[in-house]
Simulated scan of single mutants.
Amino acid sequence: MSAHARHVPVLGREAVDFLAPRTGGIYVDATFGAGGYSRAILDIAGTRVIGIDRDRTAILDGFDLVDRAGGRLTLVEDRFSDLADVCAAQGLEAVDGVVMDVGVSSMQLDQAARGFSFRLSGPLDMRMAQSGPTVADVVAKASESDLANIIYIFGEERHSRGVARAIVAARKEAPIATTEALAGIVAKVVRAKPNEIHPATRTFQALRIFVNEELDELHLALSAAERVLKPGGRLVVVSFHSLEDRIVKNFFIARGKASTGSRHRPEVAQSAPSFQILTKRPVTADDAEVAANPRSRSAKLRAAERTDAPVHEADTLPSWPRLADVMRGG
């Protein structure tokens, strides 16, 4: 099947090496995209793959691979946070591996009509699932303080208050409906220097993450993978910015060591590590891959192997802005 590959995922070879698919194994490609990981896994005879993507376009584009896989690939349109439920619906109590490529895909960025990129003129959308509020809805509805928090927390933009103030002022004059319009507003506040990223980069990242609830999704997906992996099963995650990588790193650290009761809660029983960490440091792209695909420059891969210990208690989601609250003015 490798001869049919249309897309080579970032750190694809390394991800599949850490996943270590074997004949007869069942694997979850939790972010199917263009099917790069699934193709590589299906190259191993007798493997089965459950591919998940919330983007209907990715699912529709994957039907050709489904046909060629001869019954070994099942595609499901869903959020990757629901991967445990997806597996249960397929009659699977446990799987041999889960691989995730977190964040927006190159295919989504390259489609102007999806509104992900400030470099392409298009509607201010950015929804991965193509349902629910758009970024245009958020910038029209959110309060100035909510916008500032969203842009600061999810974009790490130090000029977040100025950007939020400029958005609120601009929307009083006319709706902000296009990527070009929003990028222009941001560029008046965030001044670009030579050889630095586009001034709208962090704001677009923040709004995309927020409208798709990407960081909550990642927290939930990691816990779901812990629940469905067999002992010896592997979890491999490729992320593209510091917020995502921090979540993955902290999850593996928390699950890779025993938890104990404190002097305040001595009754808490010790929990054995549920994962053995395979990557002491994140794996990054080599010079050749960066030259071929500049997007790989920021990619970090982390991997761990499931032990036979019970699942740890699920983490509490951080108390950052939430889409439903902002859209109802809460």
Rank of each mutant, 00 (worst) to 15 (best):
S81N: 01
F251S: 12
D245M: 03
A113G: 06
R227D: 05
V248Q: 10
G12E: 05
T179H: 05
V163D: 02
Q108G: 09
A169P: 01
M327T: 03
A34L: 13
I151K: 11
R54A: 13
G51L: 11
Y27T: 13
V238T: 09
E93C: 05
L11A: 14
K230R: 15
F251R: 06
R234C: 02
V138S: 08
G232Q: 12
P199D: 12
L60F: 05
I185E: 02
R56N: 02
I50L: 15
A136P: 07
Q108R: 06
D67E: 14
A113P: 00
H264R: 15
S106R: 05
G261H: 04
R119F: 01
F63G: 04
E289M: 01
A272P: 04
A164F: 07
D286S: 08
E196V: 06
A112R: 06
A166V: 12
K300S: 05
G115C: 04
Q111S: 11
R54V: 09
R302H: 10
V139R: 11
S81Q: 08
R6N: 07
A224L: 09
V311Q: 08
A129S: 15
S259N: 11
M126C: 08
P199R: 15
G122Q: 10
I150Q: 02
A3R: 11
A169L: 11
T74K: 10
L317W: 12
S242N: 07
V86A: 06
A285H: 05
M1H: 11
R158K: 15
V290Y: 00
D286L: 09
I44V: 15
T47R: 07
G51Y: 09
R306W: 06
E305R: 07
F252L: 15
Q205N: 12
V238R: 02
R265T: 09
A169E: 13
V104H: 07
D96W: 05
A69G: 15
S319T: 08
V95K: 08
F63H: 14
I50H: 08
H159W: 04
D61C: 03
A206P: 13
D82P: 01
